[in-house]
Write a protein that binds this DNA or RNA. Structure first.
Lengths: 233, 233
DNA sequence: CGCCTTCTTGACTCCTGTCAAGTCCCGTGG
DNA sequence: CCACGGGACTTGACAGGAGTCAAGAAGGCG
């Protein structure tokens, strides 16, 4: 039953838990449990009680919310090793949904909060990560408020190019990678419609800046040109 | 010289420092210094080194950034008792500018980080506040991405009505208060132009939902109607 | 091979930004 | 006390970018 979940953890070094040594990890090990999540499954609903926290082991999640009439927006993306959940709150302001099949290491929120208070290093690391997330959320505000559709798509592609380990035929050759998100999911992140995202992609292809070899693959042909559009030069 | 800055601090109870008792406060007292800021003065520049942290004692600040071509956006507002600054980062991602004359209690960033590490209660309180700021920044993303100009202005007025202690002639009577921001500053928060903000205000006045008695004063005549527009029902 | 989802493309509308005058407000100085 | 000046705000005309509605093409899975 009490399997040593931390022992073969793929994100042991880079996750929140990387701040703890093996002995300290024991407390987390006691309350943690590994869970498999299907693509599309929502593990936390906006408005519901905040009951669990955890770490993403594999796969991707979106943090999103909707207006009363159904308009939806993704306000954050979670990658492997990212922290999931909202400690110190009674209810969630946002839903968390898997964008791909995923694995998460989950803790009951109250037990996790107690562990936080006993391990200063863990708490400090969570503070650092939360401050970074805040900076990121504010950068996204800037984009959503002021960037054009073309700028949003270009900067999204640059971010994805960096996050996703794609293939280059040669050093400095064109980079090809698969987008981990559908057009719909991209639109929801960028605050646009599917149609607008699609049109902007076509426009970049027509300009010879990217190629779309099929599926969700993207090849960046002229990185400098894409970067220039992305940074609103 | 080493004046007891904390003794007559107006936000002693509600600020970050409220988590400490008098003895613990001594450490902060040693490194803190009170500073007066003029309206329009920028106390931290995006891109510069992150050198100071602090607490707002009085007045208001905006947290903002600009795109390469000059388009600007406010990504957060700071009120008395709010924490200012960005610990654990070498440079600031955002500028912090006084929207009114203000007073701040400032600490050198490195000294403050050391104090944080010695006082778990302080660190926990900062974590709680940072998590709240993150939620707020994400709510703003939702608004900037999906709300119409009318919805943005209505929800802004609702927030300001709650934050600002205005006057009611009778309980449940119409509420009147002064906006602490100029039209330009409001536009920068809402991701709109001055003209659009102005037009939406006029529209609400024409609909009999608010009155604009002059200056920056606003009277909310039909709170329920305003709330309905704000929540995008 | 065929169905169903996802993606692309087109035509049209409308909201918001831009540019350009005015008007109001308030403090200053005559 | 009132005229003046400058910033903040309002209003109008117009244009353009992104949303909406509607087909149609492409891709994936059974």
């Amino acid at each position: 039953m009490s399997k040593r979940v931390c022992e073969d953890c793929g994100v042991r070094e880079v996750g929140l838990c990387g701040s703890l040594d093996d002995a300290e990890l024991a407390d987390l090990n006691k309350i943690g449990r590994r869970r498999h999540i299907e693509r599309g499954e929502t593990i936390a609903w906006a408005g519901d009680e905040s009951q669990t926290c955890g770490n993403v082991l594999s796969g991707m999640f979106k943090v999103s919310a909707a207006l009363a009439d159904g308009r939806e927006q993704t306000v954050g993306l979670l990658y492997p090793a990212d922290f999931v959940g909202r400690p110190y709150a009674s209810t969630n302001d946002f839903s968390i949904t898997a964008l791909s099949d995923a694995e998460v290491c989950v803790f009951p929120a109250t037990a996790f909060e107690e562990t936080l208070e006993q391990h200063t290093k863990l708490e400090r690391e969570l503070l650092r990560r939360t401050l970074s997330s805040l900076d990121e959320a504010r950068e996204r505000q800037l984009m959503l408020a002021r960037a054009s559709a073309g700028e949003r798509v270009a900067s999204f592609l640059m971010v994805m190019a960096r996050k996703t380990s794609g293939m280059r035929p040669s050093p400095e050759g064109p980079l090809t990678f698969d987008l981990p998100l559908s057009r719909g999911a991209i639109a929801e992140v960028l605050g646009l419609t599917i149609e607008t995202v699609s049109r902007q992609m076509t426009k970049l292809r027509a300009a010879g800046i990217i190629a779309l070899p099929g599926g969700r693959a993207v090849t960046i042909l002229r990185e400098a040109a894409l970067e220039e559009i992305a940074t609103a030069a």
